[in-house]
Design a protein around this nucleic acid. Sequence first.
DNA 1: CCAATAAAGAACCAAATAGTTCAATATTTC
DNA 2: GAAATATTGAACTATTTGGTTCTTTATTGG
Lengths: 184, 184
Amino acid sequence: MGRPKNFSREEVLEKAMPVFWKHGFADTSLQDLERATGVNKSGLYTEFRDKEDLFVACLRHYLESQGKRGLLTTEPLGWKNVETFLKNGPLNKGEQQGCFSVNSMREFAILPDEAYGVVTENRALLQRLLATNIEAERPRMAPSAIAEIVLSFFSGLCIERNLKSGKTSSTRKIENFMTALRSL
Amino acid sequence: MGRPKNFSREEVLEKAMPVFWKHGFADTSLQDLERATGVNKSGLYTEFRDKEDLFVACLRHYLESQGKRGLLTTEPLGWKNVETFLKNGPLNKGEQQGCFSVNSMREFAILPDEAYGVVTENRALLQRLLATNIEAERPRMAPSAIAEIVLSFFSGLCIERNLKSGKTSSTRKIENFMTALRSL
DNA sequence: CCAATAAAGAACCAAATAGTTCAATATTTC
DNA sequence: GAAATATTGAACTATTTGGTTCTTTATTGG
């Protein structure tokens, strides 16, 4: 039956993702990707059409894995979920910082249209999830309006991860923000 | 006395800035900069050390021109200034979108250390200005804490400018956010 | 062993990259 | 016109880029 593959698409994505995550699209070379994945250039080209294709695949993979964390679907729905989302949403493990998706927004000008679609779809989903959680708390202001604010604040937190600032200060800031929300 | 220069450092910065603003550092080539400024490569190299040097100079120039707008120093200080800052801070004229400074945060990994310093210094200044305006309104929560929140929200607004979304929805969002702030 | 499949690696390509140097040319003041 | 300065354009490195193709070498099932 022929020689079996010794790398899976998943493995490649898992290893390529952090590179794009940290360096973005323009500043990531094929050599970087070879090094990171341990897969030869020819191997990458048999699995993916080109660099753009691989990038979008990584982005999709990232968003799926984020969705699986279920930060906004844990029962009971409410402010607590929103707070957890803000605190633990933007990862900070080692090299990659902030949110891969938010980071990518800066590069839309040079990214394939597909990337734009993937990101906006996910943002729409996030906003629905946020609104559902907020609705459970019966605030006076419209839940979707509050959800919009939360998403912008979240986006801000994500890019601020590129700054070297303590986690404690970020946590305190989020808690203050939540105080404001709960009064709505 | 010799031939006088027919381009000033200022003019070059004014024309090079939008290019970096839109495309970032990695995706801007010297050719792009030649085209945009109308100044020959050799000319650019007599005025600036290298691409990094020119980038940082553009960033400085941007922040100075932003400061001159005085959005946060108009009397009387207060919520109104904060609202104006959020609404009119991130520019949207033509190609360049959002805030050049916030955009740059995504690229710190490949930018000279100087860029990091310039950005963080300016953020510290912004936060002081915000806090002063907030203090004038005598809120219950600490003004500096509120200022932190505003700055994060602002950063979020900036990168969201990379999305094609109506200005009206952004205005409404800001107004809702201000409602929340005023209750603090 | 044989057929089938996969991977590795090398050898390419054309284009673009940042960066440097230098001679030619232009424009000013005196 | 002469001296001083500015600007341009060309020539030139050396490296990297994304992308392609082909041969060689593994590794499997039957």
